[in-house]
Amino acid sequence: MDKRTEIRLAGEGGQGMILAGIILAEAAAIYDGKQATQTQSYGPEARGGASRSEVVISDGEIDHPEVLEADVVVALSQEAYKKFAGSVRPGGLLIVDEERVTLDPEVEAVRLPISRLAKETTGKSITANTVALGALVGLTGVVSRQAIEKAVLARAPKGTEEMNRRALEAGFQAVQKLRVA
């Protein structure tokens, strides 16, 4: 069977995690020529509540389209962390926004100040989802850097391309520093 990578992106409704999932799947399927499925679940609330987006990426055909055992979980809120941190497979990767998520003592995670980086880099905390994508791709290489950049720019509303490019870059930089340290 082809190796599949399963990613779960979670946050509060309104943080753009479903869009982040769509962009990641587009990076894989359109720009890297891989197979990808994106599914989502959301509550009836437009904002608040826990919203999650799931992306499965593979070189070959994807059968079951949902995450079975996550290789990567990104949690941008405490509720998302509480709900989905346990769904990371052993040896998998958990990425959290360190300023919004308090980790339980035994939990290992890559802690990044995702919302703060977004605010500092672009002046807008709503670019946190793009920062998160930069960090995710920087850490995992699940899609190529060119692919995620093209996918982010293709989805960025007119006039916000540069802002989104910088947000993505901030995510990459943050994990570079992590590696050096």
């Binding site: 990808a36 599914t39 389209p65």
Partner: peptide, 9 residues
């Protein structure tokens, strides 16, 4: 709902 909402290439 799965097929309806799922995104795929």
């Amino acid at each position: 709902e799965i097929i309806g909402h799922m995104r795929e290439p």
